[in-house]
């Protein structure tokens, strides 16, 4: 249903939050989705002390 509703998103982005609200006052709820950065487990860059995992 999601893609049919035109709700596709850029590949590999992380959608972290969303809200339904009627932004144009037409009586129908609209959706805003906040996407974070592009990320996959395979391309994960570790951010830690080089001595530790």
């Amino acid at each position: 249903m999601t893609s049919g509703a035109g709700l596709g998103k850029p590949e590999h982005t992380i959608s972290v939050g969303a809200a339904w609200f009627d932004y144009d006052g037409d009586g129908l709820p609209d959706l805003i989705v906040s996407d974070y950065t592009k990320w996959t487990p395979e391309t994960d860059v570790r951010c830690s002390d080089s001595q530790k995992r």
Binding site: V16, A18, A19, L31
Partner: peptide, 11 residues
């Protein structure tokens, strides 16, 4: 899964 939003999108 991360966030979730509630709304009656199909009325």
């Amino acid at each position: 899964s991360l966030g979730v939003a509630v709304g009656d999108y199909d009325n």
